[in-house]
Design a protein around this nucleic acid. Structure first.
Length: 226
DNA sequence: GCGACAG
DNA sequence: ATCTTGTCGC
């Protein structure tokens, strides 16, 4: 799929935080009027502890049927350390390369990590959204910032994620008896639509199918290429 | 200074 | 994220 390079990735942590504060102002949270969601894509990264490489996977599904359409992968050496709040500077490059290999341009991209539920409002989902100029949303397994009360036990139950007096995301129960996930808009999507899409992509597992499959594929890729 | 901290 | 076996429960 097409995309553009907003900025170079070779940067120091201090500069990365400064860049995030600038990128935050470019985010938009209105879903493109008239856009029909026919293809959703899940992305994730796997890594080894011994080697220094990152393995990315992007898996596209039809929507709302959720049938596999296409998958792409990429492998790159890690050029940035894992620093809470700066995840996109570590995983962004390899994820964008995998996405670039897709023949189909997905209407929405579900990312493993936060969107606006981030210290400066620019989690990896938001960052990728700016590069792709496409709707993106974050699906995180644990919280980065914010406070919340646990959502009800039934699938679909939600609870607001509040950070510094602002609702930055939604805690969503996707499966009974299992820990909830943290959904937040990335770019070009509103909070309610983000939750609606994430829930519509769930197939009996805790994680939305596109993200779950991307997770499995990136893991498989690492085992084979490592 | 102390505690928190996506993947 | 990754390192790791078994174990509890539907």
């Amino acid at each position: 799929m097409k995309m553009h390079s907003l900025h170079p990735w070779t940067i120091e942590p201090a500069g990365a935080r400064e860049l995030q504060r600038e990128l935050a102002g470019r985010l938009r949270f209105q879903f493109p009027p008239g856009l029909r969601v026919r293809h959703v894509c899940g992305v994730d990264v796997s890594s080894a502890r011994t080697d220094n490489r990152l393995y990315a996977a992007a898996v596209v599904f039809s929507f709302p049927e959720l049938e596999l359409v296409e998958a792409a992968t990429a492998v790159l050496p890690a050029a940035f350390p894992y620093v809470p709040g700066l995840l996109s500077f570590r995983e962004g490059p390899v994820l964008l390369e995998a996405l670039q290999h897709l023949r189909v341009t997905p209407d929405v991209v579900l990312c493993d990590g936060q969107g606006t539920a981030h210290p400066r409002g620019v989690g990896i989902a938001s960052h990728l959204g700016l590069f792709l100029d496409r709707p993106t949303l974050g699906v995180a397994k644990t919280v980065l910032v914010g406070d919340y009360n646990p959502p009800g036990p039934e699938p679909g139950a939600v609870s607001p994620l509040v950070h510094q007096g602002r609702v930055v995301g939604t805690v969503l129960r996707t499966k009974r008896g299992v820990k909830p996930v943290f959904i937040s808009p990335g770019h070009l999507v509103d909070p309610d639509t983000a939750v609606e899409l994430a829930l519509a992509c769930c197939q009996g597992y805790r994680l939305p199918e596109p993200v779950r499959q991307a997770h499995l594929l990136s893991n498989r890729l690492r085992r084979v290429k490592a």
